[in-house]
Design a protein around this nucleic acid. Sequence first.
DNA 1: TCGATAATTCGGCATAATTCGAAATATAGT
DNA 2: ACTATATTTCGAATTATGCCGAATTATCGA
Lengths: 105, 105
Amino acid sequence: MPNYRIDLEERAQMFKALSNPHRLALFERLVRCCTPGTVCSTEVALRHTVGELGKGLDIAPSTLSHHLKELHRAGLVQMQRNGRQIECWVAPATLKRLASLFASE
Amino acid sequence: MPNYRIDLEERAQMFKALSNPHRLALFERLVRCCTPGTVCSTEVALRHTVGELGKGLDIAPSTLSHHLKELHRAGLVQMQRNGRQIECWVAPATLKRLASLFASE
DNA sequence: TCGATAATTCGGCATAATTCGAAATATAGT
DNA sequence: ACTATATTTCGAATTATGCCGAATTATCGA
């Protein structure tokens, strides 16, 4: 069992990253890896490109880029270039860490 | 089983409330109902007065009040006057709701 | 009713966040 | 090398946040 504890400022940073509706929508889109009816694996992280993530969000590309950078800086979203595009995903461990912050036992 | 789902803006508001280190410290102080070594009940919410919560935080009373109001507005902290002081606590259901946002299954 | 204690509201200032457009960078295909 | 596509960086305008001190409200006890 890894230790998911992190320092106060860092925790606040994570929440700040999720405090903007656009960023939260982006994050949730990455987390909700399986569409209804499909089987969801907690081990395999599903990736989306920056462009895909921005669809339907009605924000400028520069704004989208900024938000994803914030999510990345907070350690919530991983990013990796693949050719012309940049893939984004949420590491399963990240979700566990977040959930553990509110675990009551 | 109640339905913990809430709307995007509302979720973002919750995270915004937790995005400030002072507010997060206040919230965690309320959540960490049991001090190390004691038995923690998830059913009984432990209450703290505003004054108690502010101790060791090194912020002006007006700032403390402002932060608690934000936590209350976000639905994270309950408040009730008792005589001269105001008691604050976190409802156990609130913690469950938060944890459910990151549940992977 | 008066004074002390607990907490809030208000006004204002400094700093930070959100957003965009324009320009820049990176890559792939021709 | 040129062009189109994907994304980022930069600069600037607008709005929101964090914080305090001073004044205000609420409550209790003498």
